[in-house]
Design a protein around this nucleic acid. Structure first.
Length: 481
RNA sequence: GUCCCCAUCGUCUAGAGGCCUAGGACACCGGGUUUUCAACCCGGUAACAGGGGUCCGAAUCCCCUUGGGGACACCA
């Protein structure tokens, strides 16, 4: 059975890149009817926080990526926090030590930094010089007595073998010199490469799908698998996501935390669809795909090995496309929190009207937040007029008398359905021998305060007779000012 | 600096030696529809990084150059 995992370290937000890695793992698991495991890699005690962990979990849930094993849900390989698996790591550290495959090192970080700098200056590749590798007992005791703390290093003995990557094919590190890397830190925590190997093995992970940036870690991990007597999983290194400047996506590029996208009004299903297309495609020109379609067509073979630039315009388009296809009731559910926050609505607000409003905005909205800005006039007591729109349309000579006539006709209307409003007002325009545009634009500004809105007669119907007339009266005062 | 990965329109991508006069999508530019903005429909601009091979034939295979990215921690 396929078992994959997403293993974030709780040191910050879940960003787009991490989300895409999680998504590919999740899709792969779902496609193969396997398990998706979530593991928290919190061995960096100094940088890991509970808040970050919660945010990551929330973001994953928001995106719709549920996990079969991990925090909150448990599973057969508990615990799923590396900080709680220390005894397991210790056992394997001891094993390596006993077999002479690892050794204690007493060099301090400061000393190592200095040596590294020296090597760099000389144009050498910075690597550990192995000076604690063959310490005698006497030497060891002496160093200990100096009060030096101890780390455990893995003893690198073999040349680096090529390995097979599911996406890149053979990767050959023949030339590369690996050094004796640290596997257990002074604070008693294992390093990433070690805990990762031990956990992936003990959690029976079959495929490790992770970012390209881990390619150079892979030989280290393979060496560890071998030293521990484990058989390695299949590795699949997916391309990185870049910002518009082609550098790795980061805070410099604006919003990268997944929850920021939620805040900005993106739909999780749209975001999922969009990031699934970064580095992967189904190969049939299909772009808008449901979760189910994504799962059905996903495969590692169709992941490409070229980095992808994150293109927000296309995300916006896709989000708009999802909004357009959402039933109005559903859209309202998404918009409601924003309306509440803006103070637009309360318990008494007519839900039917809100649904009609959503119908009006569906085809002209790319992010949920846009609806707040564009539909504010429905909720205002005192309309906020767009100055430019007022100057352009309301200050025309003919407008005051036009508004008088419009007001008069609307007063007489029994039914305030948009068809009736339209009929009446078109007749009026005809009588006045006015072009539709000259007639309607000033009216739009009078009623909405804006030069852009959904179809005006429908807006009027939704606003209601009373409010529409009130707006027209108000606008006349604006003109005379 | 060393090693690794990568290279098709501005961007996401299709392309597994002849189906490529290189396809789709976003963006952009026209046109249609229209009451503004959208949505929708129609059309357009736009790419195989360069140079060598291999082959009857190369975007596709090989080599070099160039360019981009990544890794070189007691971070993950």
């Amino acid at each position: 059975m396929v078992r994959v995992r997403f293993a974030p370290s709780p040191t910050g937000f879940l960003h787009i890149g991490g989300a895409r890695t999680a998504l590919f793992n999740w899709l792969f698991a779902k496609h193969n009817k396997g398990k998706f495991i979530l593991r928290i890699e919190d061995t960096d005690a100094a940088r890991s926080t509970k808040e970050a962990e919660e945010q990551i979990l929330d973001a994953l849930k928001w995106l719709g990526l549920d996990w079969d094993e991990g925090p909150l849900v448990g599973g057969p390989h508990e615990p799923y926090y590396q900080s709680q698996r220390l005894s397991i790591y210790k056992k394997f550290i001891a094993q390596l030590l006993n077999e002479g495959k690892a050794y204690s090192c007493y060099c301090t970080s400061e000393e190592l930094d200095v040596r590294r700098e020296d090597m760099k200056k000389k144009g050498e590749v910075p690597r550990y010089d192995g000076r604690c590798r063959d310490l005698t007992d006497d030497e060891r005791n002496k160093l200990k007595k100096e009060g030096r703390s101890e780390v455990i290093r893995f003893k690198w003995t073999k040349p680096v073998l090529p390995f097979k990557d599911a996406i890149h094919g053979d990767i050959n590190f023949g030339e590369h010199q690996y050094d004796d890397f640290v596997i257990l830190k002074t604070d008693g925590n294992p390093t990433y490469n070690f805990s990762c190997v031990v956990d992936d093995h003990s959690m029976e992970i079959t495929h490790v799908i992770r970012g390209d940036d881990h390619i150079t870690n892979t030989p280290r991990q393979i060496a560890l698998y071998e030293a521990l007597g484990f058989s390695p999983p299949t590795f699949a290194h997916i391309p990185l996501i870049l910002g518009p400047d082609k550098a790795r996506l980061s805070k410099r590029h604006g919003a990268v935390g997944l929850m920021e996208y939620k805040k900005e009004g993106y739909l999780p299903e749209a975001l999922m669809n969009f990031i699934s297309l970064l580095g992967w495609s189904p190969g049939n020109n299909k772009e808008i795909m449901s979760e189910e379609e994504l799962i059905n067509s996903f495969s590692l073979e169709r992941i490409i090995s070229r980095n992808a630039v994150f293109n927000k315009e296309k995300l916006d388009w896709m989000n708009g496309s999802y909004i357009k296809d959402l039933p109005a009731e559903k859209l309202l559910e998404h918009v409601l929190p924003y309306f509440k926050e803006a103070g637009f609505i309360n318990e008494k607000t007519d839900k039917e009207k809100l649904i009609k409003m959503m119908e009006l905005y569906k085809p002209r909205t790319r992010t949920l937040c846009q609806i707040i800005d564009n539909a504010d006039f429905f909720f205002q007591d005192k309309l906020s007029y767009n100055e430019e729109a007022v100057n352009k349309f309301l200050k025309r000579d003919y407008v005051p008398s036009l508004l008088d006539k419009v007001e008069e006709r609307l007063e007489q209307l029994q039914s305030f359905l948009f068809q009736d409003i339209e009929k009446t007002l078109r007749e009026l325009a005809e009588e006045l021998k006015m072009k539709g545009a000259d007639f309607i634009h000033p009216l739009r500004v009078a009623v909405t305060g804006k030069s852009v809105s959904p179809p005006l007669f429908e807006v009027m119907e939704l606003l209601g007779k009373e409010k529409t007339l009130e707006r027209i009266k108000d606008s006349k005062k604006i003109i005379s000012k």
